[in-house]
């Protein structure tokens, strides 16, 4: 180390050459000129480059986003970190996830999470709609990303197309009835019955948890409207044509009902009839 420093000092000394004796006034003048030139250079460089840099890193947040940031700093910062860049082993970065993701996760109560587990379950939302909008605005202004459009999300929807798209894209995990299904290791595709139009739209856009993203290139906004209409109007709001639906779990509960209702009733009947001797 020391030998390195010595060598460097020696080199500088050689470059500077032998010191020349100058008057005190000239030395002071020279120093002032050099200082002025350095300041000019620094100031010039600053005026040239700084504004662009500042626009990328620190734009003024809108009022809503500032409110959102205040909420974020209280409720989300533990896992998602300062400026939402994420914390290892705790929460992912939120840069670029967009307000769609925030709207889905927070308005369905999944975020803030109660604990780290296989998957965040739906629960009572912790924030009002207004607060959700503010949080979404903050994340949106922070890093951009997909947004749920305003207005009626089922505009001009076609149920038949929606049904076909639902069966092809959604039913593998959420099941034919949208009642949900199991995935590996404690993860699951939740039931879609409690979901609102905007939440379904946001989920398709942002692909939360284990769900793949269905961007506008894969499923166009019109097709999204069809799917939402099929889920909401056909699966959720329509009464089952065949009577009590047994939870729409498919043949598992049908078999259970055959034993618990049918066989039990008939065995009791046979007890009754045989007793009448």
């Amino acid at each position: 180390m020391t030998s390195d420093n010595d060598r460097r000092r020696g080199l500088l000394a050689r470059l500077r050459g032998r010191p020349v004796a100058r008057s005190r006034g000239r030395r002071r003048l020279g120093a002032a000129v050099r200082l002025a030139a350095a300041l000019m250079l620094a100031g010039g460089a600053y005026t040239l480059f700084a504004p662009g840099v500042q626009a990328q890193e620190n734009p003024p947040l809108s009022a809503a986003a500032n409110e959102g940031k205040a909420l974020f700093d209280v409720s989300c910062v533990t896992c998602h970190g300062r400026n939402a860049q994420g914390v290892a082993e705790r929460g992912p970065s939120l840069i670029g996830v967009g307000s769609a993701s925030v709207e889905f996760q927070v308005s369905s109560g999944r975020m803030p999470m109660a604990r780290q587990e296989a998957q965040a379950p739906r629960k009572k939302p912790q924030f009002t709609d207004e607060q959700v909008r503010q949080l979404g605005q903050y994340i949106q202004e922070l890093g951009g990303g997909p947004q749920v459009p305003q207005g009626n999300l089922r505009e001009g929807a076609d149920l038949a197309t929606g049904g076909e798209l639902f069966r092809i894209n959604c039913s593998q995990c959420h099941a034919f009835s949208a009642g949900g299904g199991a995935l590996s290791s404690g993860k699951y595709a939740p039931s879609l019955y409690p979901a609102t139009d905007r939440q379904i739209y946001a989920a398709m856009l942002s692909g939360p948890q284990n769900m793949p993203v269905f961007g506008d290139n894969q499923i166009s906004p019109q097709e999204k409207a069809d799917i939402i209409a099929y889920i909401q109007e056909n699966l959720k709001d329509t009464q089952d044509q065949g009577g009590f639906n047994l939870g729409r779990y498919g043949p598992s509960t049908e078999g259970l009902a055959a034993f618990l209702v049918g066989i039990v009733a008939l065995v009791f009947t046979s007890l009754w009839i045989a007793g009448k001797s």
Partner: peptide, 21 residues
């Protein structure tokens, strides 16, 4: 009283459509 095998939810059979459950 009890709905059984609601075929209208499952849609026509297509090889690429397999519902959960």
């Amino acid at each position: 009283l009890f709905q059984i095998n609601p075929i209208w939810y499952f849609g026509p059979y297509e090889a690429w459509v397999v519902s959960a459950a």
